[in-house]
Lab assay of single mutants.
Amino acid sequence: MSIQHFRVALIPFFAAFCLPVFAHPETLVKVKDAEDQLGARVGYIELDLNSGKILESFRPEERFPMMSTFKVLLCGAVLSRVDAGQEQLGRRIHYSQNDLVEYSPVTEKHLTDGMTVRELCSAAITMSDNTAANLLLTTIGGPKELTAFLHNMGDHVTRLDRWEPELNEAIPNDERDTTMPAAMATTLRKLLTGELLTLASRQQLIDWMEADKVAGPLLRSALPAGWFIADKSGAGERGSRGIIAALGPDGKPSRIVVIYTTGSQATMDERNRQIAEIGASLIKHW
């Protein structure tokens, strides 16, 4: 067993022997301040990774656009098919120029040779490549099948209805392509620590998230040296922004954090800054 596999296998073990965790309302004060600064709703939840206990939450059962955070769930569904012998990570998928959609920095470079399922998941999570996500959605049967996968996990809230990039439209009061912070946090925890996926697939999923290259201005910008984070960000229309993450000190994750916002007129930089400040408060009061 590799060191990384050992780390993920012992996530519940280490967490069980940690000192009790206590909620700190100071972080919620910052979440509410972010709402004021952005002029928009902000949803927040913080779960203990081992027990699933909610440590703090704000608007945990209000719907927010998922945006690209759905790509972690998508690759979880792909990995479940791999575990069941219905898919192979090494299978190569070929596609054409007509398949390319807006923001496809990886797939646009491989029109000639195609990409493997493993490479597509890596591109979808680490670079948020939209064509990679659409190609992977095709392998599982489309958005409705991802929703069905989530329902089978016990998540009857999260739903995907459309493809990239239309799913980022974020129309107010439109339930399409949305989740709730509580539902997303619980589902992410199941994917990373539950028995739904094999140990190898859980490790692969967290490795992809740990290698995320496009979430630097968010929670990662607030992390002290030595902290662990595996995350996936999302951005959408109407001032929408979000991030889902597993993080913790001492090089291992111990909490799940989900943050979503929508309806702001603020710039992307300002949305990023507010999420980073929430992260800084979380870490300060850990």
Rank of each mutant, 00 (worst) to 15 (best):
G142L: 00
S240C: 09
N152R: 12
K30E: 05
R273T: 13
G85E: 08
N272V: 04
T187W: 05
R271G: 11
D129T: 01
L120S: 04
I54V: 15
L223D: 01
L73N: 05
A276N: 12
F58H: 06
S68M: 00
P165V: 07
A266G: 11
A200W: 12
S264H: 10
E102P: 07
T147P: 04
L120Y: 01
L49M: 14
L120E: 00
T193W: 09
A77F: 05
G85L: 07
H156M: 11
S201D: 00
G154N: 09
N152E: 15
G248L: 01
A182H: 11
R159G: 05
R91C: 04
E87D: 14
L219W: 03
D129S: 02
T126K: 08
S254N: 13
Q88Y: 13
L192E: 02
V29M: 14
P143M: 05
I140M: 07
R255F: 02
G141I: 05
L160Q: 11
A183C: 12
F228K: 06
W208L: 14
A123N: 05
R91W: 04
L199Y: 06
E237S: 09
V157M: 08
E35D: 05
E87N: 05
P249C: 09
S201E: 01
I229E: 00
Q97L: 10
S96L: 10
S57G: 07
L111V: 10
E56V: 09
M66C: 07
D269G: 14
N173H: 11
P172V: 12
S128Q: 00
L150Y: 11
Q274Y: 08
K190L: 15
S201I: 02
A124G: 14
S128N: 02
L282K: 01
M67P: 00
D161Y: 05
A235S: 07
C75A: 13
K32P: 01
M115Q: 08
R92E: 09
I256P: 00
T126E: 09
R241V: 04
V106G: 15
T261N: 04
P224Q: 15
S104H: 05
P181T: 05
R92G: 10
L73M: 11
I259C: 10
Q274E: 14
V82H: 11
M184N: 00
I278K: 02
R91F: 06
K232R: 07
N168Q: 10
A280N: 11
A124F: 02
V157Q: 08
E169I: 09
K109Y: 10
W286M: 14
G114D: 04
I54A: 14
K213R: 06
H156L: 09
L218S: 03
R241N: 04
A34P: 02
I54F: 15
T179K: 01
N98V: 07
R202C: 10
I278G: 01
S80R: 12
L205N: 00
G216T: 13
G263D: 11
G85H: 06
L196V: 11
M268I: 15
H24V: 09
L219P: 05
G39P: 04
G242H: 02
M153I: 09
